[in-house]
Design a binder for these strands. Structure first.
Lengths: 221, 221
DNA sequence: TATTATTTTTAGATTAGTCTAAAAATAATT
DNA sequence: AATTATTTTTAGACTAATCTAAAAATAATA
């Protein structure tokens, strides 16, 4: 497989991310937002990525990944998430610290390294934030998960992932003793501000704001 | 500490390497050789590295690292060698495979990561090739080592390092069962081609060519 | 010391990635 | 449908890192 620059790889990841959540071609402006750069720079890059067969691109029509581009982006996500597991499980970083480092490590070029790392970590299916880690063929493990905010009073489940990956949110969760795997039950729902009173496995009862409950994924029992 | 480009970092490493072995300012041409690039490119880069206070540079006079440049280069060597240990000890790569990957990993920017990695590996003082790993302050552990070729008949010692790091040499050593730590004794020296008959700890007797014995470091008993 | 050879630097061009400002295309609104 | 607003692209310029070819400085040799 050819090699691509880190910048090219980051564009592919951005396009992947955007077309994943919106499920339609990514716009130049959206990519510029994701990459914190100008629309002009994006246009330039799109021309080049298209030339290399990584994206389908028509002027003014937006952009989608080709088979090849998709494979590459998936590989990057695989590397990123495996390194995050490594940093957390082996080097004992906390889940709010690992992103920046993984952002660099994902660009290390060595297929053999990725497979060995995967082995070493015990072939994990999810990363420290609960996001699925694609396997060597690019297949993601799917899981029936819902937003905590969608649970009704007395319903119970386990926290399996976060939607917001910001350090601030993750540190907040640490503070209230909420981790992946934590079991919980909805005690009460306040219509006033859509906050929830929640019974947590270990750390007792907590009021969770709407914003918080919209950023937690749970698997219902 | 500011950040520098991978290219700048690689130049610093090259200059470090050259002035380490020659113990005098590195020449433009030597650097060009080390970096596999043109002398013109080197001159360009030297101007920039000097501006950033990383090297002492006078036109036509060659180049030496400043305090700052030396710190940076030492940090790179530290990272390189720690990653090599990781790849070998944890991911079970062999010593002829690790260099290329470490060459990329050494550019990962995160002081915290380096320290955690060092901890995780048990603060090793030497890498898989027997080269010393500088500590966080940049201090190398020195060791009284000599070339195997300098041993006299009946002298004994342990292999502690290699001078030639090429995969071909390392694979040859694997083949004859010679690793770091292997104990040996000189049985006979042949004046004809300066080869040695050597008694190896486990793998019995071997004839080692002059070239081989000049590329092995041993610590005498 | 004069001449030749080697090393190093300068000059000018190229590529990747970026920028701002202006032009062109598309979408939204009256 | 015409006008306005938004999005996207083009044009032109900049920086980092590279190259080749030529000029300048240093070193080696007759």
């Amino acid at each position: 497989m050819e090699n691509f620059s880190q910048t090219e790889e980051n564009y592919l990841k951005a396009i992947f991310k955007l077309s994943e959540k919106e499920d339609k071609p990514a716009s130049t402006n959206a990519i510029a937002g994701e990459m914190s750069t100008s629309a002009a720079s994006v246009t330039d890059m799109l021309r080049r990525l298209a030339e290399k067969g990584l994206i389908h691109y028509e002027k003014y029509k937006g952009v989608a990944l080709t088979e090849k581009g998709n494979k590459l982006a998936t590989g990057l996500i695989r590397k990123h998430r495996l390194w995050e597991v490594f940093l957390l499980e082996k080097l004992r970083f906390s889940w709010d610290e690992v992103h920046e480092m993984a952002e660099q490590l994902e660009h290390i070029q060595s297929p053999e390294l990725v497979e060995r790392l995967d082995d070493y970590l015990g072939r994990p299916k999810f990363d420290p934030h609960g996001d699925p880690i694609p396997d060597a063929k690019g297949n993601f493990t799917f899981r029936k998960q819902v937003f905590l905010s969608s649970l009704l009073p007395n319903e119970a489940g386990a926290v399996v992932g976060v939607n917001d990956h910001s350090p601030a949110f993750l540190q907040y969760l640490d503070r209230i003793g909420l981790k992946l795997g934590t079991q919980l039950r909805i005690a009460e729902r306040f219509d006033y501000d859509e906050s929830l009173r929640v019974l947590l496995e270990d750390s007792g009862e907590q009021i969770l704001s709407k914003k918080v409950s919209q950023n937690l994924f749970v698997q219902k029992f």
